[in-house]
Computed example of a mutant assay.
Amino acid sequence: MRNAWTKSGALMVATAALGGVLAGCGSDDGSDTPGKAGRSGAAREQGTAAVRAAYDRTAQADTAKLTVRVRATADGQTAVSDGRGVVDLKDGDSALTVTAQGRPVEQRVVDQILYQKVPGARTPAGKPWVRVDLKRLASQQGLGTQGIGDPARSAAFARAVTDRGVSKAGRETVGGVATTRYRVNVDVGALPDGANLRRQLGPAVPMQLWLDDDGRIRRQQIETAVKTPIPASAAASGQSAAPQQLRIDTILEYSDFGMDVDVEAPPTAQVTDLTDRTPQDGGTPRG
């Protein structure tokens, strides 16, 4: 049986790594409109305060149910995944059942380590689980490590929001809960590792947040294009090549705040580490 962690698996790993970087910044459309007629400076300041406080207020709930939909496109190939599960909002650990390319995948993130299990599939070592160190993967791919799978660090994104970067977009219902939707622009250069992220994301990243009346995030919608490094094979051969782009569209929704969440890593004997076998050129894993 062909290794299940090839093209679709590689996109899923890339999505997990990049999704962590982008967890605090992104959007589904348009830009913010701070100069819109009738919007006072005081209203903008109130919106900015609400957005800046949202991550802390959400993390104070400790835990939540999480649904996520990710669409990743690179080199003309698209992978779509839908996930449902639970998340620890303070340390970023999570357990999800993800359906990607029609295959169910059990996925856990513990201490910034991604674990995945595809029913019926086996790694080259014959073990059911694969392991990818997201921090190391991001470093290898030149993406920086700040914010990888760690909502506790996302307050840094809030600090990169200015009054001119926030506008209120009205009231909407999300999962049966009344919310206020905000459009936000994040100054990428003001983030931790901002110079590196700026090369990947550009100077600013738009985001949309839906906040409930307690100021917690109920939905976060992201749509961004990320410049990925020049393939290693091209660099090694001296060929000229432009950075590739990975487009990631993501919708996160939170509910059932404060529920019991206990996420553990799989037994070591059942895990194969694929961090250094993750495709760098869009092909099959190295090693």
Rank of each mutant, 00 (worst) to 15 (best):
V226H: 00
A241N: 10
T284R: 13
A95N: 08
M259T: 13
D82S: 07
A37W: 14
S233I: 12
L209P: 03
A14S: 11
G85Y: 04
L11I: 04
G142D: 03
L22E: 07
A204W: 05
A158L: 10
M12T: 15
E172K: 11
G85I: 06
L143A: 14
A160I: 03
A152I: 01
T73E: 09
Y55P: 00
V130Q: 12
V271G: 03
A156S: 14
K90Y: 01
P267V: 11
Q280N: 10
A232R: 12
V166Y: 03
Q245C: 03
L274I: 12
L209D: 03
A61T: 12
A14R: 05
G76T: 06
K168I: 00
G175E: 04
D32I: 12
G165V: 07
S81I: 01
V166P: 10
I230Q: 02
P231I: 06
Q221L: 07
N185Q: 14
S40M: 09
R247A: 08
V261C: 00
T78Q: 11
S81T: 09
D212C: 07
I248D: 01
A158S: 13
A23D: 12
R131W: 07
P104S: 08
P119W: 01
Q239P: 01
Q221K: 08
Q116F: 04
K65M: 01
A204Q: 13
G165Y: 07
T15Q: 10
Q280T: 14
Y55R: 06
K127W: 00
L209A: 06
G41L: 09
A59L: 10
A190C: 05
S139A: 15
K127E: 00
R277H: 10
M259R: 11
D262R: 11
R108Q: 10
T179N: 05
L134S: 08
A269W: 04
V177A: 05
T48D: 04
R57Y: 01
Q46I: 11
L246N: 00
N185T: 11
G176T: 13
V271D: 02
D88M: 08
S94M: 13
A61D: 07
L246W: 04
A72L: 10
Q270T: 08
G76R: 07
R171C: 04
A49Q: 05
D262C: 01
K168L: 05
K127P: 01
R159D: 13
Y55M: 07
D256Q: 10
G19E: 14
D133G: 07
L22F: 14
L209W: 12
Q77Y: 15
R44V: 08
R57C: 02
A79C: 02
Q101W: 01
R52T: 08
I248Q: 11
G176R: 13
Q60M: 09
R164C: 05
V226G: 02
V188T: 12
V98E: 05
Q245Y: 02
Q107C: 11
G35S: 09
T78H: 03
S81P: 03
T180S: 03
T224R: 12
L197Q: 06
G38I: 08
P203L: 04
